[in-house]
Design a protein around this nucleic acid. Structure first.
Length: 241
DNA sequence: GCGACAG
DNA sequence: ATCTTGTCGC
């Protein structure tokens, strides 16, 4: 049977808006995360990230769709919606997920795997934005974070490909991996979101890392979400004046 | 009580 | 995340 995946407009069910209710909801959703590898042959992969405009009043999500073999850009989309919640460590998905889902819905096709900026299960309640996204869409997801949120790990070698396990400081459970995507750059924190195993997540990330610290899906989404192009261009003109 | 704290 | 110039190191 084929599983119909879609992008719910209201990924929070009957949430009353309170942080306490959000945390309780995370525990319920975290129980639905699947950590076994369960994804089809990769043909189309997506990358999603969020940026803000107008001092933070507007949330801007970007989604890019790439050919999994050639990394050719197949499509992209942008969603801009009013920001409805402040940033609260541990509750990032409640602030960014609505815009992300809207951007994904506007892509020309449903991806076989989604790379999301932020953490997967490497989260206090095991439901970072990548895991939340995976549960509400039913799609395979991987969290690619640039900073640690929770957990501890040993030092890791400085060459590209080096990695060490990230474990829960309290239980010792492995919740992700600290991965050096390029020689001597700050490592990325990789954790499964849904339908991808702890062992496979870093492998897939390295598969899509080219010459930059971030894997292509996330890197391209980041450029669109944060308008790297536009800002750089306007800066050059300002300096030329 | 104190420190930590994705984007 | 965002505001921002030059600068040190590979």
């Amino acid at each position: 049977m084929s599983q119909i995946s879609h992008y719910p407009a209201a990924p929070f069910g009957d949430w009353d808006g309170s942080p306490a209710a959000a945390r309780a909801m995370q525990l319920t959703l975290a129980a639905q995360v699947r950590l076994q590898d369960d994804f089809p042959a990769l043909r189309l992969i997506a990358g999603v990230d969020v940026g803000f405009e107008d001092g933070g009043t507007v949330t801007r999500a970007a989604a890019v769709l790439l050919d999994a073999d050639t990394l050719e850009l197949v499509g992209s989309s942008l969603a801009r919606i009013p920001t409805n919640m402040p940033y609260v460590p541990g509750l990032l998905s409640f602030r960014e997920l609505p815009a992300v889902l809207q951007a994904l819905a506007e892509l020309p096709a449903v991806p076989d795997l989604i790379f999301s900026d932020g953490h997967g299960i490497a989260h206090p309640r095991r439901l970072g934005i990548a895991a939340h996204l995976g549960v509400v869409t039913g799609l395979p997801t991987i969290g690619v974070a640039k900073k640690l949120l929770t957990g501890e790990h040993d030092e890791l070698d400085l060459q590209r490909g080096a990695r060490v396990a990230l474990r829960d400081k309290k239980t010792g459970d492995v919740i992700g991996c600290v991965l050096r995507s390029k020689d001597k750059v700050r490592p990325l924190i990789i954790s499964p979101g849904n339908r991808v195993s702890l062992a496979t997540a870093p492998e897939l990330v390295m598969r899509y890392v080219t010459r930059y610290r971030l894997p292509e899906p996330t890197r391209l989404a980041d450029r669109l979400a944060s308008r790297r192009e536009e800002k750089a261009a306007s800066r050059r003109l300002a300096a030329l004046r």
